[in-house]
Design a protein around this nucleic acid. Structure first.
Lengths: 99, 99
DNA sequence: ATTGTATTTAGATATTTCTCTAAATATCAT
DNA sequence: ATGATATTTAGAGAAATATCTAAATACAAT
């Protein structure tokens, strides 16, 4: 089930942070890894789940593997939800009218 | 962090199905439980996580505890995302849009 | 107060998930 | 081909999760 892998992918804070980082643009695995205090092997595992959920795509460039957001409807929806709840450090949403 | 409990709540298929069921309207715990092949104790655990994420509210009515969706911005976003990805298997209803 | 119904809590177990280290693979540069 | 760099895969251990049974709590009706 595709939905399941997406929700599972979104359930981990590290993976959500990866997605947030990728909003700034594509980035090789190693550069992404520098944002986190865990090993590259662990990050690779997270990349794998994000890919399985089709939230990111990869492209090889020389010896690096560049990750980028997969911009689709579901990706956007996930992004909206994420911003709503896990406020990004930089940008703020001002569309929270009802409630 | 509030976001974390929400994503965790959404990560489980049983809990997403509970939310889907509740779209049709409020329902006591026991009635919800009938939709699932697990014990009421297990369901209660799921209710607890949904409540923690503030995705549902409860109201006591006699000896029953009635669950209902907590309709907020994030709830709606979650609902949209959910329908996009995890099309409802057990059809519920069509008219629980506003309120 | 006792009994019955609805739900939750506690404790236990099996499975899954996250993280690590070590090894494997792929590419680049000599 | 050899060695260096970037990333992934494999295997293992610790922590979290889902589920169960049994017991506890809350209310209702006698």
């Amino acid at each position: 089930m595709i939905g399941q892998s997406l929700f599972k992918a979104l359930a981990d804070p590290t993976r959500r942070e990866i997605l947030r980082i990728l909003r700034a643009g594509s980035m090789p695995a190693g550069d992404i890894a520098e944002h986190f205090p865990m090993t590259k092997a662990s990050l690779s595992h997270h990349f794998s789940l994000l890919k399985q959920a089709e939230l990111v795509r990869t492209e090889r460039r020389g010896q690096q593997i560049v990750y980028s957001l997969n911009t689709t409807v579901m990706q956007d929806a996930a992004g909206v939800l994420m911003e709503l709840l896990d406020p990004p450090s930089t940008e703020v949403n001002h569309d929270a009218k009802n409630r």
